[in-house]
Computed example of a mutant assay.
Amino acid sequence: MSESVSVRCPACRREQFYSAPSYPCACGAPVIPPLDPAGTATAVTHQVWDEQWVTVRCASCGRSEQWPRPELGCPCGTLLRIPVAGADAEEEAEEAAAEPAPAVARRAFTPVTIRTARDAVTAAALYLRWLGYRDIRRADQRPPSGIGLAARGLLAQVDPTVRPASLRDVECLWLTAMTESAGCVYFSLAGYATDARTRADDLGVPLFVLDLTGTPQPVNSLADDLDATGASGAL
């Protein structure tokens, strides 16, 4: 169980207690970012994708993976970034995490509740990692709508809006993936237009809907297959 640390907001000086959430390692053991009780929380004024993740090593199997960096919302409106012990060694650990992991049986996916657009992106990234994709990062090219993610051999688009994904959204993702010789997958909170679903089947694009629990639900048979086989069956 995660230990609580005292966090003081630099803006209003309010003090709170924070416990880091646990995440599921591929081996099945819980992984908890080690909080630094001697560290000082900092205010987040600008969200940068690379800074929203921290590398944590599983104490059970030794595997290093990237997980959402601990953050806490203060009642005054300030978003606080919680210091993590050993964060200076992240670059070295990230290189180890980028190496192909040995085949292991997948445990049940543990979702992250979706309350914000960032939560939707986090849920999709965690799901892709659960499928077995490696080196998940922000995509180089920004999609016309939503947020793009990239992994080895894959482009993903996450649409956290309340508008169903359109035919153009699906075709743009597919075309971008084609230029990079990669596969692609789409995640949407609001579902898909009928013609978008039909076109996705023609182009071979797996479609998922993110429910508010953070669990991707397959929309077409391609998504069903990806959910069942994982990255090894898709590449």
Rank of each mutant, 00 (worst) to 15 (best):
224 D>K: 03
117 A>G: 14
231 A>I: 00
153 G>I: 05
20 A>F: 06
148 G>H: 10
203 L>H: 00
26 A>Y: 00
67 W>S: 00
105 A>E: 15
55 T>E: 06
188 S>R: 07
155 L>Y: 06
159 D>I: 08
187 F>P: 01
18 Y>D: 01
82 I>Q: 05
117 A>V: 09
121 V>H: 04
229 T>A: 05
130 W>L: 01
205 V>C: 15
160 P>A: 05
7 V>L: 06
169 D>E: 09
105 A>W: 13
176 T>H: 09
26 A>S: 12
73 G>V: 04
131 L>N: 08
175 L>A: 12
172 C>Q: 14
168 R>K: 05
112 V>Q: 09
210 L>M: 06
142 R>K: 11
118 R>S: 08
78 T>F: 04
218 P>E: 08
218 P>T: 03
37 P>E: 13
198 T>K: 03
6 S>A: 10
96 A>G: 15
216 P>G: 04
144 P>R: 13
80 L>D: 10
55 T>S: 06
192 Y>F: 15
116 T>P: 05
173 L>I: 05
98 A>G: 12
59 A>Y: 09
132 G>K: 02
148 G>C: 10
118 R>F: 12
204 G>D: 02
222 L>M: 02
159 D>K: 01
158 V>F: 15
22 S>C: 09
182 A>M: 07
216 P>A: 09
24 P>F: 00
190 A>Y: 12
17 F>T: 10
120 A>S: 12
113 T>M: 13
172 C>I: 05
91 E>M: 04
184 C>K: 00
20 A>G: 07
219 V>N: 03
74 C>I: 00
192 Y>K: 01
64 S>Y: 07
124 A>M: 14
110 T>Y: 10
190 A>T: 07
202 D>Q: 10
17 F>G: 03
201 D>T: 03
233 G>K: 04
44 V>P: 01
227 D>I: 02
37 P>I: 11
3 E>Q: 14
111 P>M: 07
35 L>A: 11
67 W>A: 01
225 D>N: 10
7 V>E: 04
187 F>D: 05
214 G>P: 13
209 V>N: 08
104 V>N: 09
49 W>I: 02
182 A>G: 02
210 L>A: 07
10 P>L: 07
87 A>L: 03
197 R>I: 03
113 T>R: 14
167 L>F: 12
58 C>H: 10
6 S>M: 09
168 R>N: 08
24 P>E: 09
60 S>A: 15
28 G>Y: 14
216 P>E: 03
13 R>Q: 13
